[in-house]
């Protein structure tokens, strides 16, 4: 049964991801008083890229891209199999690291700088996510997702500050402003898309696909904060994503030094407050 859920997750996640990303682009366009692309635009983009002539910049690039995609798929599968949260996160990190290594392979200043910045992004969000997961453990007594579903109260009630911390990580992982530092959605703005510069055609299609998986994973993690009712979950996800888009549209890109400093100080302070409260036995 677990296996069926996992497979179902892997099959359905890209479609959900396409809808989310398409919705994101339409909403962003609306904010800028534009009409925006059709809802299925991400699908068109990926299909088009897939059909392009294969072109690589280094012989090991495909290796890195396939591993990135596989890691994203496995982490989504583990998520739908309600497995260990920390394990899911570490598996996801494999992909992130291989994306960086792939960018390091090519001696292009843009992809090198992008790779370094991507590492700083990983450095910024990784501890925050580990701490959030530990917060979940302190509330449920287990790192397993199944334990969260066994709770009769939503996690958000006990982990409000950690949810904000998670929001930071979410913004960095989704590459939204002000944290779209390693690879902007718009290449002409920053570093020619930094970490993605040297991937093209089919490789880029696979990366976009993997990114859809990552989006679903990260939204899935977000949904864990309200597991007691479907509507609560939907509202929480919609609100969070809406806030993400608003933040993306109203903020400028900042430097990685600012990101590291501000996110670590704010994030660690917020998590410390929330965790101390949990350790001291506070529960609603």
């Amino acid at each position: 049964m677990t296996l069926v859920y996992a497979l179902l997750g892997v099959v359905l996640a890209p479609f959900a991801g396409i809808l989310v990303a398409g919705f994101d682009r339409i909403l962003t366009a609306k904010f800028q008083s534009r009409t925006g692309p059709p809802l299925l635009q991400p699908l068109y983009d990926i299909a088009k890229l897939w059909a392009k002539e294969p072109m690589i910049a280094h012989r090991f690039q495909p290796l890195c891209v396939y591993i990135y995609l596989a890691a994203a798929m496995v982490s989504v599968a583990l998520f739908f199999a309600q497995s260990d949260l920390l394990l899911i996160f570490f598996v996801q990190a494999v992909g992130a690291i291989f994306l960086v290594i792939g960018a390091f392979l090519v001696p292009s200043p843009f992809s090198q700088a992008g790779a370094n910045r991507e590492l700083i992004q990983i450095l910024t969000y990784e501890p925050l996510i580990i701490i959030v997961l530990a917060g979940i453990y302190l509330t449920t007594g287990s790192f397993n997702i199944s334990a969260i579903y066994a709770m009769d109260k939503p996690l958000l009630i006990n982990l409000p500050l950690l949810f904000i911390v998670f929001g930071y990580a979410l913004t960095i992982k989704l590459r939204k402003s002000p944290f779209d530092i390693s690879a902007s959605h718009h290449a002409h703005q920053e570093l020619v898309r930094g970490v993605l510069t040297e991937y093209s055609g089919r490789m880029l299609a696979l990366i976009e696909l993997a990114h859809l998986y990552e989006t679903i994973l990260i939204l899935g993690l977000c949904s864990l904060f309200w597991t007691t009712s479907i509507w609560g979950m939907v509202v929480l996800l919609a609100l969070t994503y809406l806030i993400e888009i608003v933040v993306d549209n109203i903020s400028a890109r900042m430097s990685f030094r600012w990101m590291l400093k501000s996110v670590w100080t704010t994030g660690l302070a917020l998590s410390a407050i929330n965790l101390i409260w949990l350790y001291s036995g506070g529960r609603f």
């Binding site: 682009r25 366009a29 534009r34 009409t35 925006g36 692309p37 059709p38 635009q41 068109y44 983009d45 072109m55 910049a57 718009h186 290449a187 002409h188 703005q189 020619v192 898309r193 993605l196 510069t197 040297e198 991937y199 093209s200 880029l204």
Partner: peptide, 13 residues
């Protein structure tokens, strides 16, 4: 962007 056009700015993409 209504037609899916993006100014991507990178020849490889």
């Amino acid at each position: 962007e209504r037609f899916g056009v993006l100014n991507i700015g990178n020849p490889k993409h």
